[in-house]
C-alpha cells in the first residue's frame, strides 16, 4: 500500500505569520489541465487591511536598516531559494509552468534576479542620487528614499514574475503587500516560507492569495498605501478603476505592463517607488 502524502495547507503570509483568511474562504487551485493542486486562501478586504497594517508597522525598521543589511537579507533569500531549487521546480512544473527543464530555468533565473537586486541595495543611492552644484554657499545633496508601503498586483508568472516585482520594491526599503497570481498562487506562498526563514523582518513582504478583482481595488483605495504596482492586472477596466482610486491620496502608480521577465530588468522598477529627498545646508565658518 502506497503511503498517503501529507498535503500542504497554503495560507496567507501577513506580518511574518501564516494566517488563514479571516473570512475562512479558500479557492481550489488547479493545473492548466484542470487537476486539483491545492486549496489556496481566498483573502478578504480585511486581510488586505491587516496586511497594510503589518507593512506599515515594518516600514520604519526596514527603511531604517542599513542598505548593506537589506542587501545581505535579499542575498540570504536567494540562498534559501537556491536550497529549495528542486521543490520550487517541481511545484512550478506541477502547476503547468512548462516542463521540468523550463521550471528549473525559471527557478535559477529567480535566484539570479534576487542576487542582482540584492547588490543594488547600497548602490542605487549612488546612481539615483546626486550632489547638486547649486549657485550659492550651500551643501546640497539628493538621495533616494523608499516611498513607503507599496501594494503590488503580481503578474501571472508565478515565481520569476513575482520576485521581479517584489525584489525591486523592497530592496530600497519599501514594504509591500503583494497579491499573488490568481491562477498560480502556490509558488508565492512557498516563497513566503523562504522569506520567513531568511532574516527578512515580518511585515516587509505580505502575500495575499485570492481574487485580484476583489483585493486590488481595496489596496488601490487604501489611504495608508503609498504606491501601487498594477503589473499583473490584465483587465483594463480593473486597472483603470484602481488607478483612479489611487489618485485619492496620490499614490505612485506603475501601470500594467507586459514584460519579458528574462530580459535585463533595468532600474525602473526601483526608481518608480523611490522618493528623492534633497537636503540643503549653508557652508560657512
Amino acid at each position: 500500500m502506497s503511503r498517503l502524502s501529507v498535503r500542504k495547507t497554503y495560507k496567507l503570509y501577513i506580518g511574518g505569520a501564516f494566517p488563514r483568511s479571516e473570512s475562512g474562504r479558500s479557492y481550489p487551485v488547479t493545473s492548466p489541465k484542470g487537476e486539483f493542486l491545492a486549496n489556496a486562501s481566498r483573502a478578504s478586504r480585511k486581510d488586505a487591511r491587516d496586511a497594510v497594517v503589518a507593512a506599515r508597522k515594518a516600514f520604519p525598521g526596514w527603511s531604517g536598516a542599513t542598505p548593506y543589511n537589506r542587501g545581505q537579507i535579499l542575498y540570504r533569500v536567494a540562498e534559501m531559494l537556491e536550497g529549495r531549487r528542486a521543490q520550487f521546480a517541481e511545484e512550478l512544473a506541477q502547476s503547468g509552468q512548462g516542463g521540468k527543464k523550463a521550471a528549473l530555468e525559471a527557478v535559477d533565473a529567480t535566484v539570479d534576479r534576487l542576487v542582482w537586486y540584492a547588490g543594488w541595495s547600497d548602490k542605487i543611492a549612488s546612481v539615483h542620487g546626486a550632489a547638486n552644484p547649486v549657485a550659492g554657499p550651500y551643501f546640497n545633496l539628493s538621495s533616494p528614499e523608499p516611498t513607503g508601503v507599496v501594494a503590488i498586483v503580481a503578474p501571472a508568472d508565478p515565481l520569476l514574475g513575482l520576485v521581479s516585482v517584489v525584489a525591486p520594491v523592497i530592496v530600497t526599503g519599501n514594504t509591500c503587500v503583494v497579491v499573488a497570481s490568481e491562477p498560480s498562487p502556490l509558488a508565492a506562498i512557498t516563497l513566503a516560507e523562504v522569506l520567513a526563514t531568511s532574516d527578512l523582518p515580518g511585515g516587509v513582504v505580505n502575500v495575499l492569495t485570492g481574487r485580484q478583482a476583489e483585493l486590488a481595488p481595496w489596496l488601490a483605495a487604501h489611504m495608508d498605501v503609498n504606491g501601487l504596482d498594477l503589473t499583473g492586472v490584465a483587465d483594463a477596466d480593473l486597472a483603470l478603476q484602481c488607478e483612479q482610486a489611487a489618485a485619492e491620496n496620490l499614490k505612485r502608480v506603475l501601470r500594467p505592463v507586459q514584460e519579458d521577465w528574462t530580459a535585463d530588468p533595468g532600474i525602473g522598477r526601483m526608481t518608480r517607488f523611490l522618493e528623492t529627498k534633497t537636503v540643503w545646508h549653508p557652508v560657512g565658518i
Partner: peptide
Amino acid sequence: GVVWANTFNKFDPASPFGGYK
C-alpha cells in the same frame, strides 16, 4: 522632498524639487 537645514526657501535649477505623499 526638500529639507532645508539652517536655511529655508532656497531654490536652484541644479537642485531637485518635489514632494512625498
